[in-house]
Amino acid sequence: MDLHQLRCFLAVAEELHFGRAAQRLGMLPSALGRHIRLLEEDLGTRLLARTTRNVALTEDGAALRDEARGLLDQADTLAARFRAHSRSQASSLRVGAIDSAAAGLLPLLLHDFREAHPEIAVQLLEDKSIRLLPRLLSGRLDLAFVRPPEHPDAALDFFFLFYESAVVAVPKSHRLARREKLSIQDLAEEPLIVPERRSRPHSHDLTIKLFTEAGLQAQIAQVAEEKQTIVNLVAAELGVAIVPRWTARMATKGVRYIPLKASGALAMNKLPLAAAWPRGSRDPLRDDMLAVLQRNLAAYAEQA
């Protein structure tokens, strides 16, 4: 009997709805149905009575539901105990971060974490959220600092940290470069360099939404995938870009970063940053880093 198939069955048995059960498990209903059929074939009995509108448990299904809960609880407890033992003996922590967090938050956090835990080595991986999240799910990362997805995976826990501030990257020779602040209206006719949406949806939508909320049309001149490439294109005087404030730490000759002026909450809640880790996992080293993060979060947020 496959434990994953058993988890699938238990979700359906508790929800009595394939769509809700699939959403709870973070999988497609068709894949969920396939696992249930395989379990029924393995056990040689029908567990669910299905119609086009309803799902009900058979007598065998009801019996298995009660047994499955206890069995899966035992399996989870056993796995957690061995993972915790393994991590308690570990001397390294694998942390992933998007580029702006790697430039801004991570140096602050690692400085404070090392003071408390000088014996722990931290392995860092900088990448996009869409590549970091699968690494968490596969166990290749212990913790990641990402843009939280619109539909988060049920197998991950997310802890919202703060919203990063936005600034405007302009060429130093640009007519706006001497300004102390810029508004969206100041950029109305400027060619814009924006991130590719598939890989950086939050950063891409930041520019589009700011212009839309100001009643303007964004004049997109260039799309680029990497933040450093965007800044280099600004330095080459191909346009201006709206980027997280921590991008300013990626020193690039010929670029000036100017605070974005906006009325009300116009420039707020566009660039959320969150910590993410595998749900239900027990990891003393990760929890120690999260504790340092929570203690100093207000100070970190002031610099975002």
Rank of each mutant, 00 (worst) to 15 (best):
S91K: 15
S30I: 10
L47C: 06
A248P: 01
L125T: 13
H151K: 13
I130K: 07
R200N: 13
P118T: 12
A301V: 06
G254S: 06
N54V: 09
L38C: 07
A155R: 15
R175E: 12
P191L: 10
Q217K: 12
L125Q: 15
L57S: 09
E164A: 04
P259I: 11
F113S: 08
H151G: 04
R46E: 10
V223H: 06
D73P: 00
M250W: 00
R20K: 15
H174A: 09
H204Y: 15
Q89S: 12
Q228P: 01
G26P: 02
Y300W: 08
A265T: 11
L266H: 05
S183Q: 10
L266E: 06
T247N: 09
S173R: 13
R20L: 14
A177Y: 03
A11N: 05
V168D: 03
I184S: 01
T45Y: 03
L110Q: 09
R94Q: 08
A188K: 14
P195S: 13
S183A: 14
D205C: 05
A31G: 09
A63H: 13
A116F: 11
A224F: 01
G254I: 03
R200L: 10
L192V: 03
P148F: 08
V240G: 02
A31F: 07
A274I: 03
G215F: 11
P29Q: 07
A75K: 07
L216A: 09
M27H: 04
V223D: 01
L39K: 04
L39T: 06
L108Y: 05
L187T: 07
T52G: 08
L206M: 13
R50Q: 11
T45A: 14
R282N: 10
L3M: 12
A121M: 11
E226F: 00
A56P: 01
Q185W: 13
V231F: 00
I242F: 01
F145N: 02
L216F: 09
L233W: 00
L32H: 05
L233N: 02
C8V: 06
T229E: 12
L156I: 08
P171Q: 08
L233P: 00
Q219T: 12
Q217D: 12
A177P: 02
L141C: 10
V170Q: 01
L238W: 00
T58E: 08
F160N: 14
S88P: 01
E115S: 15
A236L: 13
R34S: 10
Q219W: 03
A275V: 03
H111W: 07
R140N: 13
E115N: 14
P284Q: 14
Q222G: 02
Q217T: 12
L271H: 02
L43S: 06
L105P: 02
R20Q: 13
V146W: 00
A304R: 06
M268I: 04
L32S: 08
L137Y: 07
R135C: 07
R256M: 04
S203F: 00
D112M: 10
V122I: 12
E41Q: 11
F18A: 15
A154Q: 10
L71N: 07
K128L: 14
H204Q: 06
A79S: 13
L109K: 04
L25T: 07
G96N: 02
L133N: 07
T252D: 00
A63K: 15
I193N: 00
V223M: 05
I220S: 04
Q5K: 09
L110I: 15
H117K: 15
A13E: 11
I98R: 01
N269L: 09
I184W: 03
